[in-house]
């Protein structure tokens, strides 16, 4: 079963990576920890689940495309509104206000989700069932999980290319490296901030939409992934994309192997690893 445990860990790492990537981009560019990030993930999941249940009759696997699109788009839209109305007035304000306004948004969004989609769980497992299973070294494994890993990898590479090769990407990196210098160089910090926030929200929504065929969408859906994304960010270093990748691999494998071999204390082990890294290297693995 070893290959399956490792694959599970990778699958888990894949969607945690997408969430923490978004969280980390926002953190790097805007210096803001978005506590409502998990809610954006949940919004993506709910929207995608809703889309799938609407189209599920006699559908093929391509049903996933509209689901991913609508989920990502709605989360991005929520991100845009949130940035414009809530975050922007906070640019010059102290840290506690910035954190608290995202905390307020978290509570707000939980109930907005309830208002839109009701309080009951939505099951949208059609794509998961349709893809069936493949054989991995004699063990059955759902093909959908492989698809999730593949898509996460593609998105990760795209983001990396974007950050490395495009003008906007380079500007974003410049801001996260040295904010004052970037301002002095005449970069439009506000507009780039908005952009990065929407990008982060879209990544969260995409991740939610990608995961939802394997799990029900239900209230409080974003809480656990948010915590895991925090751990990833703390482990990997604040604002570091490489850190997000390594951090999510550590978190994913710890969870998978932890549940297989020491199920009693798996969650605590994760936090202990994070704490150990922080004591040894306070700025995280790839922090500055």
């Amino acid at each position: 079963m070893w290959p399956i445990y490792i694959l599970n860990g990778l699958y888990f790492a894949a969607f945690i990576f997408l969430i923490s990537l978004g969280l980390n981009i926002i953190l790097g560019v805007m210096g803001l920890l978005n506590l409502a990030h998990g809610s954006l993930y949940a919004i993506g999941a709910f929207m995608a689940a809703w889309t799938i249940t609407r189209l599920a009759e006699g559908a093929s696997i391509f049903i996933l495309l509209p689901a991913l699109l609508t989920g990502t788009a709605l989360a991005a839209l929520f991100g845009l509104f949130m940035e414009y109305f809530l975050i922007r007035p906070m640019y010059k304000r102290a840290l506690e206000y910035q954190l608290l306004i995202t905390f307020g948004a978290l509570m707000l969004f939980e109930d907005v989700i309830k208002m839109i989609w009701g309080g009951e769980a939505i099951y949208a497992s059609t794509p998961f069932v349709l893809l069936g299973r493949v054989n991995i070294l004699g063990n059955p494994y759902p093909a959908y999980f492989l698809l999730v890993m593949l898509l996460a990898l593609v998105v990760g590479v795209l983001i990396w290319l974007f950050m490395a090769k495009t003008r906007i990407g380079v500007m974003l990196r410049a801001i996260s490296l040295d904010r004052e210098m970037a301002t002095a160089m005449g970069l439009k910090i506000n507009r780039l901030g908005t952009f990065s926030f929407v990008l982060g929200a879209a990544l969260a929504g995409f991740s939610g939409a990608l995961v939802v065929p394997t799990t029900p969408a239900l209230l409080g859906f974003g809480m656990e992934p948010l915590i895991l994304a925090f751990i990833v960010v703390v482990m990997g270093g604040l604002g570091s994309l490489k850190g997000a990748l390594i951090g999510s691999l550590v978190v994913g494998q710890t969870r998978s192997l932890g549940i297989a071999f020491f199920p009693e204390i798996e969650l605590a082990v994760m936090f202990l690893i994070a704490a150990a890294i922080l004591v040894a290297k306070p700025e995280g693995l790839f922090g500055r």
């Binding site: 307020g104 948004a105 978290l106 509570m107 707000l108 109930d111 309830k114 208002m115």
Partner: peptide
């Protein structure tokens, strides 16, 4: 039923 909405909006 939507008490979180109220609390969150108050905070904001």
């Amino acid at each position: 039923e939507y008490w979180m909405f109220i609390i969150g909006a108050t905070l904001i």
